[in-house]
Structure formats: C-alpha cells, structure tokens
Computed example of a mutant assay.
Amino acid sequence: MVIEIFKQILGEKKVAVIEFLASNAYEDGTIKYKITEICSELNVSKPTVIETLKLLEQKGVIKKIKTGVYKLTLEPQKLQNPQMLG
C-alpha cells in the first residue's frame, strides 16, 4: 500500500529507481552504478534517473561521492520507520 502511494506521488519509474538503488546498496550504504547502467537495468530514461538522483540528494537520502558512486546517508532506523522521514 505504501509503495502504491509513493508511485502516485513520484511516478512508477522514479519509485523503481529508488527501489533499485536501495536493494543494490552495499552494507555500508555505497551504491556503485552509473546513470546509464541504471537506465539499462530498469529500461527508464536518463532524465528520469537524473531527476530521481537529484531529488534523493536534495532530500538528504543519498550523497554523490563521484561519478557512478553514491552513498545512502539516512540512518538505518529512519529507513525502517517511514514516519521519521518527514
């Protein structure tokens, strides 16, 4: 149900990008995928991936380390409790 709400707000493709990043992060929160790799894996456009990454950066969810490397910056308890995100 919660995912369906996010899909209505953000759109299915952005939610797919977020799910992909979260499920492909290493234990330390590092995500190592280039934009083109994410596009290819999910069959989404480059602008969609870029917009999603920018949104996550603006909201403090991820931090860009270098090209193709991001790091989740949310504390683990915030990831488990969506009420703490707002």
Rank of each mutant, 00 (worst) to 15 (best):
M84R: 14
L53E: 04
Q58F: 13
Y26N: 11
I3W: 04
K54M: 10
K14A: 04
Q83I: 07
L79G: 05
A22Q: 02
K54V: 10
Y70T: 04
L55T: 10
A16M: 03
S45E: 14
K7A: 03
V2P: 02
F20C: 03
E57R: 15
L72E: 10
Q80R: 15
L74F: 07
L72R: 13
I5L: 14
G68R: 02
Y33W: 09
V69R: 06
V49G: 00
I9K: 11
D28I: 02
F20D: 00
K7C: 15
V69T: 15
L21A: 01
T36K: 08
N81D: 13
K7L: 05
A25V: 03
E12R: 09
K54S: 11
E51D: 10
M1Q: 06
P82W: 00
K32S: 13
I31T: 07
G60K: 13
K64S: 14
I9C: 14
K13T: 12
S45A: 13
L10G: 03
M84S: 05
Q58K: 12
Y70M: 08
V15M: 01
E37F: 04
T52L: 03
E51W: 07
K63H: 09
K64H: 11
P76C: 12
A25R: 07
K71C: 06
A16E: 15
L10W: 10
E51I: 12
Y26H: 09
I3Q: 10
L74Q: 08
I62N: 01
V69D: 12
I5G: 06
P82M: 05
A25L: 08
I9F: 09
V61F: 12
I62W: 01
V2C: 12
C39R: 03
N24C: 05
I65L: 07
N43K: 11
K13M: 03
T52F: 01
A25F: 03
T73V: 10
E12M: 02
I31M: 06
S23K: 15
I9T: 05
N81G: 08
L42H: 13
M1C: 08
I62F: 04
T48H: 04
K7D: 01
P82G: 02
T73E: 11
I5Q: 11
T30V: 15
K66T: 06
V2Q: 14
E75H: 09
